[in-house]
Amino acid sequence: MCTLEKRGRVFVLTLTGDGEHRLDADLISSLRSALATVRSSPSSSAKGGGGAALVTVAEGRFFSNGFDLAWANAAGSLSAARARLGSLVALFAPVVADFFSLPMPTIAAVTGHAAAAGLLLALSHDYVLMRGDRGVLYMSELNLGLTFPPYFMAVMREKITYPRALRDVALRASKIAAKEAKERGIVDRVCGGAAETAEEAMRLGEELAAKNWDGGVYASIRMSTFPEICRAVGLVEESDEQKQNKVVSKL
């Protein structure tokens, strides 16, 4: 499950416990509930009470090891297992949409392994910080004989912008450690251990929150920056007229 707290201007979303933080229906629901609470906070817009930011961190060895494949495979037949996995794929898409439409900067503190949907969760943030002493980024679908859902590919194409890096993540199922991930532009910063990664994420969150940016404007610009992702997860892209009206209303 996850918890949500606010430290000054920074919301801290924590995946709790020492497990793998597998994304099952309960954890997905918990994430959406937490993000809804963040979105409804007065501090999610500059006019409502000052700037804000969100940091996501995880306890234990894993940031997230992806969907709950054990639950899916427990269905028995291959078709039933694929149906269960498909249900998780459908449930998780709105989480990605929530992050891309959240009215504040977001930072993932990758304090452990991030695999498959767990890596997608990290990439759904504006900034990704990763511990340097252990942990890998890994898309396991090729090794598992699974295709990527369209919104997975949309996120990877727009967030892993070096062609060879995208090739190795998607078509080699490479396990990428922090230093290499930084060199390939997948993560923004490499920190020491888990504690240092979380602390650096908090410092970045505080720095960004202090900008006092209007949350609605921030979210609108983010969605315009990543149009393929937004279309893939069902976010309605604003028209040029809507954007212009929003700018005029701030004058």
Rank of each mutant, 00 (worst) to 15 (best):
A34G: 11
A201C: 12
A80E: 11
V128M: 07
G50H: 07
T147Y: 12
M202V: 00
A181Q: 05
L23V: 05
K182R: 14
V110W: 05
M104H: 00
R32T: 03
R32C: 06
T56H: 08
V110N: 01
I28C: 09
I160F: 11
A36I: 04
R222Y: 04
S124V: 00
K182E: 14
A25P: 10
L235W: 04
R32P: 06
A108V: 00
V128W: 01
V38Q: 12
G86H: 02
D24E: 13
E241M: 14
L204G: 02
L31Y: 08
P42C: 10
V247C: 08
T14S: 12
D68V: 04
G118Y: 06
V217T: 13
C2H: 03
G86N: 01
A115G: 06
V233H: 08
E228K: 12
G234V: 05
G216F: 05
M156N: 05
L27C: 12
S64F: 09
K175G: 15
T3Q: 10
K250C: 08
Y138S: 11
G60I: 06
A177R: 15
I160M: 12
K6S: 10
V89A: 02
G185F: 03
A70Y: 05
A75R: 08
C230D: 07
R203P: 01
G132W: 03
S77V: 05
A80F: 03
M104C: 14
A72R: 02
M130I: 08
L78H: 11
V12K: 10
A210W: 02
K182T: 03
T14E: 11
T197C: 14
L78S: 13
A109V: 06
L146N: 02
L171W: 15
A115H: 12
G205S: 09
F67L: 10
E20W: 09
Y127V: 14
G48E: 14
A178Y: 02
L129K: 03
G234T: 06
A115K: 09
F99R: 01
G193W: 07
